[in-house]
Simulated scan of single mutants.
Amino acid sequence: MANVRICMIGAGRVGKLHSSTLRRHVPGGEVVALVDPVRSILDATGDQFGIERRYASLEEALDGTAFEAVIITTPTPTHRDLAVLAAARGKHVFLEKPMALSLAECDDILAAVERHGVLLQIGFMRRFDPDFAAAWERIQGGEIGEPMMIKSLTHGPGLPPPWATDLKTSNGNLAEVNSHDLDTLRWLMASNPRRMYVEVANFKGAERGVTTEHFYDNMLATVKFESGALGHISGVCPCDYGYDSRVEIIGKKGIMQIGEMKGESIVVCVDRDHGLVTPIFRRWPDRFRWGYIRELEHFVACILAERPPQVTGADGRWAVAMVLAGTRSFLEERPVYLQEIMG
């Protein structure tokens, strides 16, 4: 197989990002079809990236174009049905986070890819970011000793889409924004979570027109791991100062920090009263540019080499379980054990 032919499902901002990444940076992957039910979005993205075959549904794409894999970037409530259908037709699946709304949906996806012998990779791009990947290697090498505590923050500038603000159609910001933090904690600590406690607050929702019940724009989560280690997550969305993602790991021998607020190695001074100005990352695609490139390189390489991806469906399922535990925690105002969620 010279190239992996890919059907991009979802023509919105993430679909555009992945289409651009494949076109510019991953020569082994080719987007040959595009799916989106909104015709104006479908045509705009198709025109932008020269994708001629455009469909309103995956069913139409499967019948109309030959391809080996799909990339699913649509809203979370659609993930289960799209992934199961693609797997049933023998297509490898790259599935954006969060994996699904429930563990039952996750299990349906896992069963489908296993039954039909296709690959599944979850879109946790931080695992492919050079800084995060190097940190993982150094932690595994024992540089800071046994990890005791980890702190992760993700503060994003924009409101989530309307469907993601309602717990009836989404699991909230804990899923749509902080799934990356949840996966990062479990990955870097090399331990599964045992217990979670979450507090949430809503400071900006009303002034920005969000009236859905249980909406929150600030979140603090505490995690106790099976290893005995502790974790902490800070989530703010919307956060008006820019995009901010940082992690700190404290080990028995030392401390490791990943990321910084400074977005570019540029300092500007045009006014001595205001002093030095350093840019911050404006958006998540800027901060994790190389992570997005390398995760798709990895997906295509795994298909060509017929080997399983590093980020599996089991990883996606754990993140969903943590989201569900955290949501139950703030709704019931108590710590929640993962065994309550996972049975």
Rank of each mutant, 00 (worst) to 15 (best):
M342W: 09
T65Q: 11
C237T: 08
A83Y: 08
K253E: 12
G251P: 06
F94C: 03
A69K: 04
L153A: 01
P193S: 13
L120S: 04
N202I: 04
S329Y: 01
G275M: 07
E332F: 13
D108K: 06
H214L: 13
D129S: 09
V300H: 00
T154L: 15
R246K: 15
L85R: 15
K168M: 11
G316C: 13
T184A: 14
A104V: 15
I250Q: 14
A44C: 08
R283A: 14
R13I: 13
V14F: 12
F330P: 08
M322P: 03
P130F: 12
P162V: 15
P238E: 10
G251A: 10
W187N: 07
D129W: 07
V336A: 10
S19P: 01
E68M: 02
G12W: 09
D181Y: 01
Q121H: 11
N3G: 10
G64S: 02
G242I: 07
D315F: 05
F225I: 09
R283W: 11
G15S: 07
G251H: 08
K151R: 12
D131V: 09
P279Y: 03
V93H: 01
V323N: 04
F288P: 02
D183V: 11
A104K: 03
V26P: 02
R5C: 00
R294S: 07
L167G: 03
A175H: 05
G205H: 01
Y197L: 08
I303D: 03
V323Q: 05
A33I: 06
I6L: 07
M342V: 15
D183L: 06
V14D: 07
R126I: 08
R115F: 04
T222D: 01
G228T: 06
V267W: 01
N178T: 11
S191K: 05
L62N: 05
A83L: 09
G254R: 02
I150Q: 09
R307N: 01
A175R: 05
G263N: 08
P27K: 13
Y55S: 02
A301T: 04
I341E: 13
D166T: 02
S179H: 05
A61V: 10
I341W: 10
A175F: 12
R282P: 00
E30M: 03
F225K: 04
G142T: 11
T211Y: 10
S19W: 02
R39T: 15
R283K: 14
G117W: 09
I51P: 03
P37I: 12
Y241L: 14
G10F: 12
K204P: 00
V32L: 06
W136L: 15
H214R: 05
R53C: 05
M219D: 02
G117F: 06
S102D: 08
G172Q: 02
T76S: 11
Q48E: 15
Y216V: 00
R334G: 03
G172R: 04
F299Q: 01
E295I: 15
S19H: 01
V38T: 04
V113C: 05
A100Q: 03
D244W: 14
K91G: 10
A319Q: 08
A314K: 11
F49I: 01
D286H: 12
R282N: 14
K253G: 07
D181W: 04
Q310D: 08
S245I: 12
L276Y: 04
V277W: 13
L62I: 11
A229S: 13
G123Y: 10
A134L: 14
G64C: 05
P75D: 01
